[in-house]
Simulated assay, not measured.
Amino acid sequence: MSAYVMESEGETRRLLEQARALPVRGHLLNTGLAPGMAALDAGCGPGLITAVMADVVGPGGSVVGLDSSDKRLAEARSLCSGLKQCRFVQADVRKTELPANAFDYVWSQFVFEYLPAPEEGLAELLRVTRPGGRVVVADVDGPGDLGWPFPEELREGIQKLAAAAKAAAGVDVQVGRKMFHLFRRAGLSQIRVHLAPLYVVAGAADARQMEDWATRFKALEPIAAPAFGSLAAYQEFARRYLAMLGDPDTLKYSVLLITEGQKQ
């Protein structure tokens, strides 16, 4: 996996708030997670989704939270300390070293955008899923350039930022649309794709959303500044983008694509 370019002092808080803002339980239930299952949260981060998964599967099921970051795993273990059906392992999603055919349900959210070769990650998730089990990948589709009115210079700027992240760290903010094709090529059956909002901001963004974007912009400074010609030019772009997010007369939205399929 590429180095995690979003790491910062505020990243744990941003990840937790982002997870809380999404209807994660509904997405899990809608894609097949059920009581009694053995489940994997591949790329669990600070563990909020792992805890929701544990609640769904109940005491008769089990959930493994997997992440490559020892810091995130420590946070996840603390958050899930009262859930006996949870355990955590440190590993790359492309090489988990977990047993083959071990899980009924495998979930991975906001991980594949960081994989330079996402087919490798999907192959590993398939390996650890039992025949008849389900693999689910939820990820972004777009850099944050949807809405109206949306000044063209800001649209070009956010696309420039996405291109810089891809060139420097392999981050692909359009990976969501690519997963259906990858699922097909990997031989999964009963593939379904769900389109859901990552966020919809009709009017001024709230404090959480503003902080989320400010944290992203700050973390990406080392990658973005050269693409914009200078740190000052990038910071000016970020300031103007945040001002647009806070504009009460604009609509801003982003898309989450959830792809699920069954292992043959």
Rank of each mutant, 00 (worst) to 15 (best):
L146V: 11
K178T: 11
P23C: 10
A165Q: 10
A91N: 02
D206T: 14
V57G: 06
M1Y: 07
A225T: 13
K160Q: 14
A238C: 01
W213H: 11
R192D: 08
P151L: 00
V106P: 01
R134W: 09
E236L: 06
M6Y: 06
P143K: 05
L245P: 02
L15V: 12
A100Y: 02
G26L: 03
D67W: 04
T129C: 10
L242K: 05
L115Q: 03
F150Y: 14
L256M: 13
V175N: 03
E211H: 02
P248V: 04
G133T: 05
A76F: 01
V106A: 07
Q85F: 05
A164Y: 05
S2N: 14
G132M: 09
R72T: 05
L256Q: 00
V201R: 10
L33M: 06
M244W: 15
Q109P: 01
Q174N: 06
A225E: 12
D141F: 07
V52I: 13
F103T: 15
A224D: 00
M53H: 01
V57Q: 07
S69V: 01
A102L: 07
S2I: 13
V135D: 05
A169Y: 11
R87L: 03
A168Y: 09
V201K: 14
G10W: 09
E236G: 02
L251H: 04
R14Q: 06
G36C: 08
G121P: 12
P226R: 03
G82S: 12
I258A: 13
L198F: 15
A207E: 15
A225K: 09
G45R: 03
G82C: 06
V63Q: 00
L115A: 04
V200N: 08
L98Q: 00
K95F: 05
I191F: 08
V63T: 02
E97V: 07
K71Q: 09
Q90K: 13
G10P: 12
V173T: 14
E120F: 05
A164W: 02
A34H: 11
R72G: 04
V24C: 00
R208I: 07
A207D: 08
A167C: 14
P143Y: 05
L83H: 11
L48Y: 05
D92A: 07
A3T: 09
I223P: 01
V89D: 02
L257A: 03
G147W: 04
P248R: 04
S78N: 06
D104F: 05
Y199R: 06
